[in-house]
Design a protein around this nucleic acid. Structure first.
Lengths: 226, 226
DNA sequence: GTCTTAAATTGACCCGTATCAAACAACTTC
DNA sequence: GAAGTTGTTTGATACGGGTCAATTTAAGAC
């Protein structure tokens, strides 16, 4: 289901997104003008691997999972995009085809920006180009982190890392709520859901208490040295 | 060992690099002006994780391996850069610190471009910004490929993939020479050298013959379905 | 060419995690 | 609130690949 224009609340969310927050108002208006919005249920597919794709998607609310399919049908997540993230920037500067499948991991509202317009603006306005450069560098770093984690850490270590990345620095004990389902976290960390579950129970002996989506940390140091 | 200026042959190599080939001569001159060159032996370290780094390195010849260290001292390659590649673009647009260690994987000649200048040029010249955007998108895609491979494919499948990526399309049988040591290939594919060796011997039954650095493929179809 | 050192291979073993199956818990929907 | 659906946990098992050690092979040095 599509609506032609962004509502004012959609607009407000966009303005808060990291990508847009660095840009002058006029640039934002130029980018957003003509954008369309769509709503999606959990498990809806937004686009498929190898599909022609000349749009950038912005997650206004909800969550989008980007994954590739193996020959045998197995899925491997390559990224998970929360509210405010841009999806498909790579594609519009390369061959304008999706490199992976995208699906909503929960009920989501998605804005679509035209790739052609973004390319034009990037070529005309160095502020836009600059913002894109920073975005891509950030994504690059995240991808590097992810690859290194996969190759260096065991499942409990990856989970400990993830938990610590949510720790307000300085505090020794804290708790937070997972921003999505555990199965999504498992995918993001490159694990089967069962392995995530087992990792949590391994971490119990290091002071991690899991109650539903809420995670409580009693001893940060124990986690750090895991 | 450093030389202050690029030789004319260094310059020629730069002009052939994918990044520079899209740029007008004037832009290239502006970027390259003031660059320094250094030569390195195998295993020399170019920079270390978390070091301040406000340069972009260009591999003029040789090979550079980018890797992260685990707590236990294990190394995980995050990228391997052959001649013509740029290293450290992410860093100059983020916090100007290295996100990984870089070491020469064979005797190498490296050019250093100043990050500050590159940033300035990217902000002034949209052609430079454009070239950087395309470069980063390409790197992003490669990183995504790598992550997906790690998560979806077994060791023999990754090796088969690598071999096929060197197959001149259309040909049913062919052979080529590995552009670097097998241990480097192993790291690039996220494998221990032993695992690479075993993968090769598994692929022998699919018509892959390995003689030193030369790889011969007798039956492409068998490889593709592996 | 021979000597020396580094790289690659092979075997034995073990650890980590995927997979399958089943029990359980938590939401929906009516 | 009951019934069905979906998500999570637990156990048993199998497989892939890492690690260590011992050879074999290849590559540099003289």
């Amino acid at each position: 289901m599509k609506t032609l224009r962004l509502t004012s609340s959609d607009r407000a969310i966009l303005l808060n997104a990291r990508f847009f927050s660095r840009l002058p108002r006029t640039a934002i208006e130029a980018i957003v003008e003509g954008a369309t919005v769509s709503t999606h249920e959990t498990h809806d597919t937004l686009f498929r691997q190898d599909d022609p794709l000349d749009d950038v998607l912005v997650v206004l609310s909800g969550l989008v999972r980007l994954y590739r399919l193996g020959k045998d049908g197995r899925e491997a997540d390559v990224a998970v995009f929360p509210r405010g993230e841009l999806i498909g920037v790579n594609a519009i500067f390369l061959d304008r085809r999706a490199t992976a499948n995208a699906q909503a991991a929960e009920p989501s509202i998605i804005a679509r920006l035209e790739g052609a317009k973004l390319r034009r603006l990037a070529a005309e306005d160095t502020a836009v180009a600059q913002a894109l450069l920073e975005l891509l560098c950030h994504h690059g770093k995240l991808a590097e982190d992810c690859l290194a984690e996969d190759r260096l850490l065991t499942a409990p270590q990856r989970v400990a890392n993830y938990i610590l990345s949510h720790c307000p620095n300085g505090s020794e004990s804290f708790s937070f709520r997972l921003p999505f389902q555990k199965s999504v976290l498992a995918g993001k960390l490159g694990l089967a859901p069962e392995a995530l579950s087992r990792a949590f129970s391994t971490l119990r002996q290091s002071g991690v208490v899991v109650k539903g989506r809420v995670i409580e940390i009693r001893d940060r140091q124990a986690l750090e040295q895991f």
